[in-house]
């Protein structure tokens, strides 16, 4: 029997991500269409959304829960800022340089982090997040110390085009970059879905079959670092200022929270969740100033208790529940093929 067996389950992981396109598209359209407050506000949320994608990739696909993606994020951001302040203002150059800086940083840190698993990684990455702020504060020539850098020149999309300063073009540009980077992440993760799921599920058996597990995880971590670096570039492009506090523990915690709420196995879910969390935080900051940690903590607790697996898993359960309810309503028995899990 040499016929190729059908593989209906193959595209499940990509199909799971399609529902996220709707709120993403809606949010962007609304923001782009309206005036004043919204375009700038949403644009400023996108760097964290992309950072959340990076964190979700490492936490979900590599199975290493991390607070440490702020390091490549910072590397990308400061590379972009310094390039812009030195007169090189082409956006594609910034994005490439930032991605490379992020990948390099994540590659270095990954050599330590990927040798460990589970909560040890979380612990170590906590230290990395702290060290990132400390480095940013102390490396004054690059970061401007605690005061940070301000008045960073706006990027140009192409040589000869006007700088991206107006809110709507910045929003469209940031959305394009975020969507492109997220889509690239999704496609790459899908291509290696089998490998990554196997390695996460049974590392010993995978190694005994010849798979260099640590190398795979390092590659995922480094790739995620490139995404985080790109997010850092977006931070500069949307804010045009940066302080060490922007690349510290609070940001890392936010990104991890977004990944947890969105579902660590769903990069686009993490992006949408980041926008949601930031929205909630901004609303709360207006009414209860100074209590952002309380809100964040409460959201963490709620997410862990109420949403095991994040919103993505909740949606999957909801869909399965709907399907089940529909099936019990049908009078005739189900065909044998439905015995297989989807």
């Amino acid at each position: 029997m040499t016929a190729r067996l059908p593989l209906p389950h193959r595209w499940d992981d990509l199909r799971r991500w399609v529902p996220w396109l709707l709120p993403l598209g809606a949010a962007t359209t609304l923001a782009a269409a309206s005036d004043g407050y919204w375009p700038a506000t949403v644009a400023r949320m996108l760097p964290l959304a992309l950072l959340a994608v990076s964190v979700a990739t490492v936490t979900g696909a590599a199975g290493l829960p991390t607070l440490g993606q702020v390091a490549p994020y910072a590397a990308g951001a400061y590379t972009t800022a310094r390039l812009a302040m030195a007169g090189h203002t082409l956006a594609p150059v910034h994005l490439t340089a930032a991605a490379l800086a992020g990948a390099f940083t994540a590659g270095l840190l990954g050599m330590l982090l990927v040798r460990h698993r589970g909560t040890v990684v979380l612990m170590l990455s906590l230290a990395v997040a702290e060290l990132t702020t400390i480095t940013a504060t102390q490396w004054r020539t690059v970061s401007g110390g605690t005061d940070g850098l301000a008045g960073i020149p706006a990027p140009h999309l192409l040589p000869g085009t006007p700088p991206l300063t107006a809110d709507r073009p910045v929003l469209l540009y940031a959305t394009a970059v975020t969507v492109a980077a997220t889509a690239a992440t999704m496609l790459l993760l899908h291509r290696h879905h089998l490998l990554l799921t196997a390695v996460r599920g049974n590392e010993t058996r995978a190694a005994a079959s010849g798979h260099p597990v640590t190398t795979y995880l390092w590659l995922v971590h480094t790739g995620a670092g490139a995404i985080a670096g790109t997010a850092g570039a977006l931070l500069i492009h949307t804010h045009r200022w940066i302080t060490p506090a922007d690349v510290g523990f609070d940001t890392a915690a936010l990104a991890l929270l977004a990944a947890v709420i969105g579902g660590t196995h769903s990069p686009p879910g993490a992006a949408v969740a980041a926008v949601l969390v930031l929205g909630v935080r901004d609303v709360a900051a207006a009414d209860w100033p100074g209590h952002a940690p309380l809100l964040l903590g409460a959201l963490f607790v709620a997410a862990v208790y109420l949403l095991p697996g994040g919103l993505t898993a909740a949606l999957t359960r909801l869909r399965a529940e709907i399907r089940r309810v529909r099936a019990t309503r049908r009078p005739e028995p189900l065909p044998a093929a439905s015995r297989r899990t989807s």
């Binding site: 089998l194 799921t197 996460r200 058996r205 995978a206 079959s209 798979h211």
Partner: peptide
């Protein structure tokens, strides 16, 4: 013997022949 959780039986064997 442990299997790869989350994979089908065929996928498990596919994983065995990495090269």
């Amino acid at each position: 013997p442990t299997v790869y959780p989350g994979l089908t039986v065929l996928d498990c064997v596919r994983m065995g022949g990495w090269h």
